[in-house]
Amino acid sequence: MLRLEEVKHIAMLARISLTDQEIQKLSSQLSAVVEYIGKLKEIDTKDVEPTSHVIPINNVFRDDNIRQSLSPQEMLKNAPDSNEGFFIVPKIID
């Protein structure tokens, strides 16, 4: 069972603000899913290697060549707020 305090803590980690009502609801819904997921404990996985990738490919590198990339102007077009090549966010430092 996920306690309300735990749900609040996770919401903070996930950077999502929740109403008290949502916290209540998520506590019961997540508890049901976590309980269901608990069935994995039935299996002994000692000495089983965890899967990191389903197809055996190793680190992928490309040649270190300079290539054309998108311009700052294009990248800022979707920003909710920008100015002179920068993203604008609420004031961070007083």
């Binding site: 994995l40 996985t45 089983v48 290697e49 965890p50 899967t51």
Partner: peptide, 13 residues
């Protein structure tokens, strides 16, 4: 959770 799931994933594969 996560590590356990990735181990069971190996068994499923």
């Amino acid at each position: 959770y996560y590590k356990k799931a990735q181990q069971i994933r190996t068994l499923i594969m």
